[in-house]
Nucleic acid binder design. Structure first.
Lengths: 214, 214
DNA sequence: TAGATTGTTAATCGATTAACAATC
DNA sequence: TAGATTGTTAATCGATTAACAATC
């Protein structure tokens, strides 16, 4: 039995990483305090929204002063679990899986890729940036011997659901889904979808709308 | 002077690619007509939302019958400009840029990568999947001689804004932004952000919330 | 203290859902 | 025709903005 804490609305959560980014920039500029008003001007939001957003998590400011930049960064990092490295595996060692592996290496920290998996025997044993590719059959043993937080799903749509069930079976609690499959799973697993192709269609939509109005 | 047509709200636009995907699946299953009720059950939406969404663009259904799947696919493809291939260039030939090039090749059509650009002389002349890497200096000439629809931005944050201005100067009207830079540009250029690292932080947030409630 | 700025409540706005008349 | 299902208007819900008392 679990007591669901009153969660912040998702639109608020999705704004937090952006707050974090701007606050880090302030720090780089040597700015140690910021008011919601000044931050809102930089970010193109309303000051009201910033105060509302932060107050879902607590009262981190000080009346008459504003917010301490360093403190607020720490708070947001705690909320988002930034700085707590996550052990990840990538499932699917095709173009997409390899692209993700390479990309993650270009980021700093947080996501550690421990292994890749593929059902294609031809790929098994190869390395992508020092990361070994194992056969899907080895997933069960690997997850028993290594504490894996996140499975990154980079398989073709047709394999998506099946692989997701495999992931659940092996007790991983989060999927970062880069596949085009919609994973409807009634399990307490957490899923974040990265729909890159959908993003592209939104762009071509906007472009054509823009052209119409020229 | 331009007459802005009454645009559909962005939440609606962002649902269109998903409608498209489900409709294509229906077709594969040999289903040629669908009611908003049946589609809503499949997609986990309300029937009302589906009808509302579609009616921002027109009345595509038929009372007492439902929607013709093939027709609706065509309509959505027209709205999103799917099937009109877009000529793209990728700016930034580092890990991220190369990852995107490889990824796009794993998708079918629509985005054609014509060239990559980088300011690092060491990369100039290399090929990524047959795509040549040019020096940034050559961007102006290249865009004069080739009709480029979309610039895909895959540069480090620090270079983001400067490169974006370069893109505008060379008359490209759309940016698919994979960089972590916020591009605030007052120009009629269209921008779609793909904030992959932000998506990751949302996932780690959800995971930690989920763990709390166990 | 006076000025500034928060935290929070109330008002507004926009998006989603419900309801139903129109109609195939 | 009767049944089904749309297109559309009205009601509800949730998110954003405005306002202001609390307070540093």
């Amino acid at each position: 039995m679990q007591t669901l804490s009153k969660n912040a609305p998702m639109p608020v959560v999705r704004r937090l990483p952006r707050y974090h980014r701007y606050l880090k920039e302030l720090l780089e500029e040597g700015i140690y305090k910021i008011s919601s008003k000044d931050l809102s001007a930089r970010m193109g939001l309303t000051a009201s929204q910033i105060r509302q957003d932060l107050n879902y998590f607590g009262g981190f400011g000080q009346q008459g002063y504003g917010y301490n930049v360093e403190d607020l960064i720490t708070v947001i990092e705690d909320i988002l679990s930034i700085n707590t490295p996550s052990n990840c595996i990538i499932i699917g060692a095709g173009n997409l899986g390899r692209a993700i592996t390479n990309y993650i290496f270009s980021l700093d920290g947080n996501a550690k890729v421990c292994a890749m998996f593929d059902s294609d025997e031809g790929k098994v044993g190869l390395l992508v940036k020092d990361i070994p590719i194992y056969h899907m059959n080895e997933l069960e043993n690997f997850t028993k011997e290594n504490a894996i937080d996140i499975a990154i799903l980079a398989v073709p749509k047709t394999a998506g659901l099946e692989v997701a069930q495999e992931i659940i079976k092996n007790n991983i609690k989060a999927i970062w889904n880069f596949s085009t499959a919609d994973l409807e799973l009634d399990s307490d697993i957490v899923i974040e979808n990265v729909a890159i192709n959908e993003s592209f269609y939104v762009l071509t939509y906007l472009l054509s709308e823009n052209n119409k109005n020229t």
